[in-house]
């Protein structure tokens, strides 16, 4: 049996909101360590890897491994019915045909209970090897989101160029071009505002702006985003959860 209680529904609300536009059907794998999801978008360009460790829950138990096949849009409809500050408990039997979601407000005078039908989802499980990256950028997630949004107004592609201590986001469009350069920066009082660049080799990669604008839907989850890049290899965008992560692997574009 699975029983996982979040102190606040807001965490799962944000996670589902970040994923629902990229992937439609997901298997949620529940084990004693927590809940993990791996899902790839229909175009096979973006891979989502989610880990909500048991530590992200106030109470968590899962006696046997359970797979919950969930339709993200349906899950999102139910999740939106709960208040962000409600406690949220996920309950499923050992061989479940439904996932129960129970929202309780903190004063305990209102309990809302929903049942979501499960689906049998036949999905490839991809092996994600430990990848080597030539550049790692840690930066404020809100700043990264603004850059992705701004650059998308110009072009469907966003070029990321990293040299020494700066990252250049470059967009070349039909009616004009634009770029934003950010440099390493340490804010001792507000560490979440800092930019850290670790570089082994210079980077020049181009990504689809559409996918980046899906990834930045994770911005409410974490104040910082970590971007890991290597030439001719999928990039990794990571948002840390209180205990766990939401990761996106994005295949780059290449010149014909």
């Amino acid at each position: 049996m699975l029983e996982g209680k979040f102190d606040e529904a807001s965490l799962l609300k944000k996670v589902i909101d970040a994923m629902k536009d990229s992937v439609k059907l997901c298997n949620f794998n529940c084990t004693e360590n927590g809940i993990s999801v791996q899902a790839i978008d229909d175009s096979r360009v973006l891979l989502i890897s989610l880990l909500i460790e048991a530590g992200s829950f106030e109470d968590y138990r899962c006696d046997r491994n359970i797979v919950l096949g969930l339709e993200m849009e349906s899950l999102n409809k139910i999740i939106k019915n709960g208040n962000a500050s409600d406690m949220l408990t996920l309950v499923a039997e050992d061989s479940p045909d439904a996932l129960n979601l129970i929202f309780e407000d903190k004063r305990r005078d209102r309990i809302a209970e929903y049942s979501l039908k499960l689906m049998d989802i036949d999905q490839d499980f991809l092996k994600i090897e430990d990848m080597k990256f030539d550049a790692v950028v840690n930066m404020p997630s809100a700043e990264f989101a603004k850059i992705c949004r701004d650059m998308k107004t110009l072009s469907e592609s966003l070029q990321i160029i990293i040299t020494k201590d700066s990252v250049k986001f470059n967009s070349e469009g039909d009616f004009g071009s634009g770029s934003v350069v950010i440099k390493s920066f340490t804010d001792l009082e507000k560490t979440e505002e800092s930019v850290r660049i670790t570089l082994e080799k210079p980077i020049n990669l181009t990504f689809g702006a559409k996918y980046l604008n899906d990834i930045i839907k994770s911005t409410p989850l974490a104040s910082q985003v970590t971007i890991k890049l290597c030439d001719k290899q999928p990039a990794l965008f990571e948002y840390q959860l209180p205990s766990g992560y939401l990761r996106f692997y994005l295949a780059p574009k290449f010149e014909d």
Partner: peptide, 14 residues
């Protein structure tokens, strides 16, 4: 022009 790459070449199916 540029072409969107796919992930299939990078990750193997388990």
């Amino acid at each position: 022009g540029s072409t969107q790459g796919r992930l299939d070449g990078f990750f193997s199916v388990m």
